[in-house]
Design a protein around this nucleic acid. Structure first.
Length: 155
DNA sequence: GCCAACGTTGGC
DNA sequence: GCCAACGTTGGC
């Protein structure tokens, strides 16, 4: 039994990993998330959930594409790798602290939807939307069906 | 490069 | 358990 499809927003710095990179590899394990809230969101994900792919920390921050959740959450292997930037000495195989999901490319938007434009719809998006919430730095956050629909209508 | 917002750490 | 210090995020 799987529950209804949900929607998410995932941020990435295009210098590190862009929508074009995702298109090239097809599927990417979303490793390196070291924030409990973001981790908890990934643990709620179901295969097939929709993902808005957002470029942050760049010239024009924008939603640039759509991806799909391609796996349920599983332990992020980088937490066990002492050579990784994401190594966490306090995490154990018995009780892994950090999780990830696989993310699959679906398509790029016909045009990127810049943050500047998204902000103009802050009222319609409502209070629960990460990008229009003051000071929100969460890299993985939920998106309602209504927000998803509104944002894609701007495309 | 600046700075506001926020999470985490660690001393007490 | 409080809270100051510090680090990180991310828009501008």
């Amino acid at each position: 039994m799987s529950s209804r499809k949900r929607y998410w927003l995932m941020k990435s710095e295009p210098d590190a990993f862009s929508i074009d990179d995702l298109q090239k590899v097809g599927v990417e394990p979303w490793n390196g998330v070291r924030n409990y809230q973001a981790r908890n969101h990934m643990r709620q994900m179901q295969v097939g959930d929709g993902v808005l792919f957002y470029h942050s920390s760049c010239a024009i921050p924008a939603i640039v594409g759509i991806a799909k959740v391609a796996s349920v959450a599983y332990p992020d292997p980088t937490q066990f790798d002492p050579k990784s930037d994401y190594f966490d000495a306090k995490s154990t195989h018995e009780e892994p602290r950090w999780s990830l999901v696989d993310v699959a490319f679906e398509r790029k938007l016909k045009r990127a939807i810049p943050l500047e434009e998204i902000k103009q719809h802050a009222d319609a998006l409502g209070e629960g939307f990460a990008l229009t919430q003051r000071g929100s730095r969460l890299s993985v956050s939920p998106v309602s069906a209504a927000q998803w629909k509104l944002l894609l209508s701007l495309e």
